[in-house]
Each structure stands twice: as C-alpha cells, then as structure tokens.
Amino acid sequence: MKGFMALNRGASTTTHIDAKTREFIALAVAVTTRCQGCIDAHARKAKAAGATKEEVAEALGVAIALNAGAALTYSLHVLDAMDGTGQG
C-alpha cells in the first residue's frame, strides 16, 4: 500500500501537465480498466480541478474510440488465428 501511495503522490505532483488534464487521463484509464473506485475518485478530482461535464465527455470519447480500435485490432488477431495465421 505504501508503494501505491508513493506512486500516486508522484503522479499527482507533475509539473508538465495541469491537474485537469491529468484527471482527464485518469478518467479515460479508469473507464478502460473498469475501475469503479477510480472513476468515483477521479470524477471528484476532475470537478475540483474545474473540468466541465462536456470536457469530461470529450475525454471519454477518446477512451471509447481507443477501446473500439483495440477491439477491432484484436478481433483481426482472432480471425487470423481461426485461419491458422495467428501471431502466437
């Protein structure tokens, strides 16, 4: 637990991106990893950082598009495997 807390503190004290952008990234990752606790925590933090619902929705649209792209890519791997031409 101490290691996780140290990692979390380090990630929240970066100086190259602002807190709101960091929360957009955290929310997108939370959605793609299906972490309800993360979603709850980072939605609160995003709101506190001044994020609007519209901004969060746009950030989540990126996560949705990326998940769709990954699903497409891995679906092609499945079809290749069915043909016996898979990578593994």
Rank of each mutant, 00 (worst) to 15 (best):
A63S: 02
L60S: 00
A59M: 04
F4T: 10
V62A: 03
K2F: 09
A49V: 05
G10Y: 07
D83A: 13
R22C: 02
S12N: 13
A6Q: 15
L76D: 14
I64M: 08
E54S: 07
A65R: 05
I25S: 05
K45H: 13
A46H: 07
A30C: 02
A81E: 06
M1I: 12
G69N: 06
G86F: 14
A49P: 01
A41V: 10
D80E: 14
M1E: 11
E55R: 03
A26L: 04
Q36I: 13
A11R: 09
S75F: 08
K45V: 08
D83T: 06
K53W: 09
T32Y: 05
T73F: 09
A26S: 04
N8K: 15
D83H: 08
E23A: 03
I64G: 00
V31M: 12
G86N: 06
C38R: 00
D83N: 13
R44A: 13
L60Q: 02
G50P: 01
G37C: 02
V56P: 01
T13V: 12
I64P: 00
K45D: 11
I25D: 03
D83M: 11
K45S: 15
I64T: 06
M1H: 08
L72N: 06
L76Y: 15
A41D: 04
R34A: 11
T32N: 11
T32D: 12
M1F: 11
R34Q: 11
A65L: 07
K53S: 09
H16S: 14
M5L: 11
C38K: 00
R9C: 07
T85K: 15
K20R: 12
T52F: 01
A51P: 00
R44K: 15
R9L: 09
K2Y: 07
I64N: 02
M82W: 07
R34T: 10
A57E: 06
A71N: 03
S12V: 06
N67E: 10
A41S: 14
A11Y: 13
T15V: 12
M5A: 11
I25A: 05
A63V: 01
M5S: 10
A28G: 15
I17N: 04
K2E: 08
E54Y: 10
Q87P: 09
G3N: 12
M1Q: 10
E23R: 02
D18R: 07
V56D: 00
V62R: 01
A70L: 14
A26V: 01
A28L: 08
Q87E: 12
E54Q: 08
R34F: 07
T85P: 04
L60K: 04
G88A: 08
T15N: 09
L76R: 14
M82A: 09
N8L: 10
A65M: 05
A19C: 08
R34W: 03
V62E: 00
G10E: 09
V29T: 05
Q36N: 14
K20V: 05
N8M: 12
D18P: 06
F4Y: 15
T33W: 06
A71G: 01
A57G: 05
Y74M: 11
A63T: 00
I39D: 02
V29H: 04
A65H: 05
L60F: 03
G84P: 01
V78Y: 14
Y74L: 12
T85C: 06
A51Q: 00
E55C: 03
A48I: 07
E55L: 03
L66Q: 05
G86D: 05
D40L: 04
N67S: 09
A6W: 09
